[in-house]
């Protein structure tokens, strides 16, 4: 019945400028939209972010994933999008939609703790798979550069 599952992984430089409060508003906005769209599109996954970049794992039917990715490509807030992986998978690694702050800044970690908790974000899930581990490392690296 179900179409075969695909996974798409990308990360992008963060083009959201402004102060911390503005950034938080933006993140809230992105998260709210993602939740809404992704529930409709049967997409689950993980969104990682910090002051340097967004990184996302999208899991779901191929055409929905492609449409979501195209939306991201046309979004001004994302720049230099790097596609890290696109492949079919046997099962979802993130059965629910999880979002979490991944970074080294304690202040940011505290500020976004609520988001992680409410989405059931579990950082340990990011260590199981090679590409997930890579993604987490890249994200932290980008923060350092930002």
């Amino acid at each position: 019945m179900t179409a075969s599952l695909y996974r798409l992984v990308y990360y992008s430089r963060n083009h959201v400028s402004g102060d911390a409060a503005e950034f938080a508003t933006h993140v809230d906005d992105i998260l709210a939209k993602s939740r809404q769209n992704n529930r409709r599109d049967e997409i689950t996954g993980a969104l990682l972010f910090n002051a340097g970049c967004f990184a996302q794992v999208l899991e779901g039917p191929l055409e929905k994933i492609e449409a979501t990715f195209e939306r991201i490509q046309q979004d001004d807030r994302h720049g230099d999008v790097s596609l890290l992986a696109l492949n079919s998978i046997a099962a979802r690694s993130f059965p629910n939609w999880a979002m979490g702050f991944v970074g080294t800044s304690n202040g940011d970690a505290e500020r976004f703790a609520g988001i992680s908790a409410s989405s059931g974000f579990d950082i340990s899930r990011l260590s199981g798979d090679q590409i997930h581990t890579l993604l987490r490392d890249l994200t932290i690296e980008e923060e350092a550069v930002a």
Binding site: Y6, L8, E70, L83, L86
Partner: peptide, 12 residues
């Protein structure tokens, strides 16, 4: 924008 990666039918 046009130079950004496309994903079409599973092709990058």
């Amino acid at each position: 924008l046009v130079g950004r990666t496309y994903v079409l039918n599973g092709h990058t």
